[in-house]
Amino acid sequence: MIHNIIKDKPTRLFIILGGFFIANAILAEVIGVKIFSLEETFGFPDATFSLLGEEGLSFDLTVGVLPWPIVFIMTDIVNEYYGVRGVRFLSVLTAGLIAFAFVVFYFSIRTAPAEWWRLSQDKNGVPDMQAAYTQILGQGMNIIVASLTAFLIGQLTDATVFRQIKKLTGEKRIWMRATVSTLFSQFVDTVVVSYIYLYFALGFSFPRVTAIAIVGYTYKFAIAILCTPFIYLIHGMIEKYLGHKQAADMKKAALELQPGTS
C-alpha cells in the first residue's frame, strides 16, 4: 500500500509541498521571538522615520518573517494543483501542529533543570541556561493565539483570492493570482496579528500599532513582489515532474472542485 502511495506523483508532490509548508510555518513561530534590524543586517544605518505621529520607527522585524514567504509560495502552488481544499487541509493541520509544539514547549520549560546544565554556559555569557531556554521558547506563547488566528484567516484569504483570480484569468497571469493573493493575505495576517497582540494584549496605542503594521506590511509587500519569479520556477519544475497532461488535469480539477465537496 505504502509503495503505491509513494509512487503516485501527485500524492508524493502534495507530501513534499506540505512538508515545506508545515516546516516553515513552525520554524517561523519558533524563531520569531527575535527582532532584527533589516537595515543593519544589510550594513545600513537605521532608517529612523515618523509615521502617524509615532517617532523613531525603523524596519525592526521579527525573524519569523524570513521563512514566511516560503509558506505563501507553497500556499499558491498547492492551490494551483490541489485547490482550496488542499490549502485548507494543510492550514488546519499546520495550526494544530503549531499549537501542539507550544504545548510541548510549555511542559518542557517546566521540567526541573539539572544544576550542572543550568550553569554550563556561564563561560559563554549565558549565566542561566534555564532562564535563556524559558525566554526563547516561552516568549512565543504570549502571541500564539494572535499568530494562529492571523495564520488561518490569512491562509483562507490567500486561497480564496487566488481561486477567484484564476477563475477570471484561466491559466494565464500566474504572477497576478500568486502576487495579488499573497498581498491580500499578508495584509490580513499583519492586521490581525498586530491588533490582537499589540493593541488588545499589550495595550499599545492604536496609532502606534497601525504604524508598526504599516512598516511590517511594507516589507512583506516588497518580498511578495520579489518572490514572483520563484513561483514561475517552481511551476516549471512541477510541470516537468508531473508531465503537462497530468499537471493540466490536476489544475482543472482543482479549479472546478468546490470547497466542501469531495
Rank of each mutant, 00 (worst) to 15 (best):
V71N: 11
V71W: 01
V71R: 02
F72V: 14
F72G: 08
F72T: 12
F72L: 13
M74S: 13
M74Q: 08
T75W: 01
T75V: 10
T75I: 05
T75C: 11
D76G: 14
I77K: 07
V78A: 02
V78L: 06
N79D: 11
N79C: 12
N79F: 00
N79T: 14
E80H: 10
Y81K: 06
Y82N: 02
Y82K: 07
Y82F: 13
G83D: 06
G83N: 02
R85E: 14
G86H: 05
G86S: 09
G86I: 04
G86V: 05
G86R: 05
R88P: 06
F89K: 12
F89V: 11
F89I: 10
F89A: 13
L90R: 00
L90Y: 00
L90D: 00
S91Y: 04
S91F: 07
V92I: 15
V92G: 01
L93H: 01
L93K: 01
L93T: 13
L93F: 12
T94R: 01
G96I: 08
G96F: 10
G96P: 03
L97G: 05
L97Y: 08
L97M: 15
L97F: 11
A99M: 14
A99K: 05
A99D: 04
A99S: 09
F102H: 06
V103I: 15
V103A: 13
V103N: 08
V104K: 03
V104Q: 02
F105I: 08
F105C: 07
F107C: 02
F107I: 09
S108N: 12
S108Q: 10
S108P: 03
S108A: 14
S108K: 02
I109F: 01
R110W: 09
R110F: 11
T111G: 14
T111V: 15
T111Y: 11
T111H: 13
A112M: 15
P113V: 09
